[in-house]
C-alpha cells in the first residue's frame, strides 16, 4: 500500500483582500475542494471575510476568483521550486 505519493508540480494559492469583501460566502460555497472557510474576524465595514484555511486541498482552479462579486478573492497556481 505504501505507494510513493506523486510529487506535486504546483500548489494552489488563494489570496483574499478583506477590505473589499462583503461576506456573501459564495467562494466558500462553490469552492470545489472546500479549501476556503469564513473567518470569525470582521473587516472594518463589519463583514466576515473568507480565509484560506486548507492550502493542501487547493488545486488552484481559480473558480473563487471567477465567482467573487467584489473582486476580493482570487486563486492561481504557483510552481513549486525544485527541492522544496
Amino acid at each position: 500500500m505504501a505507494t510513493a505519493q506523486k510529487k506535486k508540480k504546483f500548489r494552489g494559492v488563494v489570496i483574499v483582500a478583506p477590505e473589499r469583501c462583503k461576506g456573501c460566502a459564495i467562494c466558500v460555497e462553490f469552492c470545489p475542494t472546500g479549501a476556503i472557510t469564513m473567518s470569525d474576524k470582521f473587516n472594518s465595514k463589519g463583514y466576515h471575510y473568507p480565509e484560506f484555511t486548507y492550502p493542501d486541498k487547493c488545486t488552484g482552479c481559480g473558480l473563487c476568483g471567477m465567482y467573487c462579486p467584489d473582486f476580493a478573492v482570487y486563486g492561481f497556481r504557483e510552481k513549486i521550486a525544485e527541492g522544496e
Binding site: M66, C68, P69
Partner: peptide
C-alpha cells in the same frame, strides 16, 4: 449588494 450576480 452582498451576493449580487453583477460583479461575477
Amino acid at each position: 449588494c452582498t451576493g449580487c450576480g453583477i460583479g461575477t
